[in-house]
Design a protein around this nucleic acid. Structure first.
Lengths: 134, 134
DNA sequence: CGTTCTGTAATAGTAAACATTACAGATAAG
DNA sequence: CTTATCTGTAATGTTTACTATTACAGAACG
């Protein structure tokens, strides 16, 4: 799994503490220790899903649109990393009963894991993450 | 996450269908589509934890020791991949309240996720995986 | 109309995963 | 007692995934 999920959480938490004005991708990237372009890529996903809005040009940047308690970590996971737990099975042997069926079985198990994980992540909203950070 | 976890499941499932004789790392690797050395590495972990035993030399290989319903996927996960969900946070900015605290917060959340996932994985034993494969 | 931003593609660099080679040691069979 | 077979493990090479960097078009604002 790449770190888009954690970067998204970091960015939204950052924005959550700056709801009165817009934050630039550079300011967020300095907080997170990554390149501004990555921040813009991740945030463009979050924008598409209506969590934040952005503005170009002087004084522009990113800002929260929703209430902090409306956004939970499962929403963010689905946007940034859904399916990331699914194992990448190499070409196994179709002539072996195990090789021929393992991918299907593993995929169904990991799908269940992800759904189950979702139930847990839904309990965390950005508001709660902010409280933990403070 | 690497695929040690899924390779371990694949290998144990393979062994579960050959409980009367030993299987070589090459036979298992052909089923799983990976290099025999990787199989031996993963299986050496499982051996240390008493799930299987091995024998060198002619007629040697790997064989199940425990009952199939004694081994569940959480046991296997812990051996092969515990902590793999923990995000690798780059050096974030200590002068920013978010950067300074995010790693700690994320680690505690992901630790909880892993524990919660464990409750789910405990429900799957190798016996059940075998039934799904067949 | 120049400056400051986002948006996004294209390229380069780095790190993690995986394969391969090599060889020592154990075991069984001839 | 020697040869073939197999595990155990380290060392090295290769590939793939992730991340950084560069580049530039387009929007907003003074």
């Amino acid at each position: 799994m790449n770190s888009d999920f954690t970067l998204a959480i970091h960015s939204l938490t950052f924005l959550a503490l700056q709801t009165d004005r817009m934050s630039t991708s550079e300011a967020i990237s300095e907080s997170a220790g990554v390149h501004p372009v990555r921040i813009r890529k991740v945030l463009s996903l979050l924008k598409k899903h209506g969590f934040i809005k952005s503005k170009e040009g002087t004084g522009g940047g990113f800002i929260f649109v929703l209430d902090l308690s409306e956004v939970n970590l499962w929403d963010i996971y689905k946007i940034t990393s859904e399916g990331a737990l699914k194992p990448k099975c190499p070409d196994s042997n179709e002539n072996c009963i195990v090789g021929a069926n393992m991918e299907r079985v593993l995929c169904s198990i990991f799908f269940g894991v992800e759904e189950h994980m979702g139930e847990y992540l839904k309990e965390y909203t950005i508001k709660e993450v902010v409280n933990l950070v403070k």
